[in-house]
Write a protein that binds this DNA or RNA. Structure first.
Lengths: 176, 176
DNA sequence: GAAGATTGAATGTTCAATCTTT
DNA sequence: AAAGATTGAACATTCAATCTTC
């Protein structure tokens, strides 16, 4: 290994201290954790320069990509972002205060609330989208296109194994 | 694609809503984020069953793998866990209260403090270590050994590109 | 009773300001 | 002046309890 990352060093330490344990799995899990933190730091810097928090883009982006009429139930937003229902309420409150979303009771099911993008919210998230992808491209630049594809494929297999199924697979069998 | 994960669905939505944008990079970044959250959930469940928080194992494990005399400066602990100095102080306070670590001023540099493992802390983290690796192995089981190695290699390249160098590479050139 | 959302308490983090030591 | 750690404030999350609606 010519150039090592932090996990190379961590695994070397474990080998010295606990040679009885095969710490190989830590090399995968630990790298995913570190990559996640470093990437989120890089994403946050871009959004901060555009008056957005990462979590704000997360919610607004989920609404935008859902397509017209850009409305989603609060529960669906929580599942998409993997956050608790309490966190959803909190985020909604603050995006409402910024005038970026609307909140209305679902007429079809009055337990549920529908969150919608305001024109201002739609313009804001739509406007930063291209720059966001450019920023991600920069953060991933150490890997060539083929390696990025390979990485995504390996992570998909891992994620499916962890139960991260797309909505298609989540539907009970036999649903049209 | 026979079985898709959540990101397959996300990218499909972006293609429909914003065909002008190539969202491929989101497929990599988003999968790393989701894998990180799902893995940390799985790690936390194991530690909770052993009266530990994930962050507690994080600190205690860093001390253990540093080898005898199992002492590290507070700053070094913060860098290893990628947390702020304020968070380090907070974590140290609570591990001290549990009697798992010691805290003393570094005699050689009285600005710095040295954190050490108590006998009880060492026994606790050493005792859960093997089960932790078994748990990680289970979480990664969707990938075969070769794929896990390949995944780790791709992530190393990405991490080095993001500046996550091992201590070796962090030393100024010419250092023995 | 179960589902969806809200509330408040407990938890834990970052950030800026501060203090000591170098 | 710079480095290392601590403090308190602001922020954000989870969890359990609660309320409304189905």
């Amino acid at each position: 290994v010519v150039v090592g990352d932090d996990l190379d060093w961590v695994l070397e330490q474990w080998r010295a201290e606990r040679p009885d344990i095969d710490a190989t799995p830590m090399g995968v899990v630990g790298r995913i954790q570190r990559a996640c933190r470093l990437l989120e730091r890089g994403l946050g810097e871009y959004f901060a320069a555009h008056d957005l928090q990462l979590w704000e883009f997360d919610i607004l982006g989920t609404l935008l990509r859902s397509g017209p009429p850009y409305e989603l139930a609060a529960g669906a937003l929580g599942r998409a972002s993997m956050i608790s229902s309490g966190a959803v309420t909190n985020r909604i409150d603050r995006l409402l205060a910024r005038g970026l979303i609307t909140r209305q009771t679902d007429p079809a099911n009055r337990r549920s609330i529908l969150i919608g993008l305001t024109e201002r919210g739609r313009a804001l998230v739509g406007g930063v989208l291209e720059g966001h992808v450019v920023n991600e491209t920069r953060l991933l630049a150490a890997l060539g296109p083929d390696d990025q594809k390979h990485l995504a494929d390996l992570l998909r297999t891992l994620l499916v194994g962890l139960g991260d199924l797309s909505p298609d697979e989540r539907r009970p069998p036999g649903t049209p």
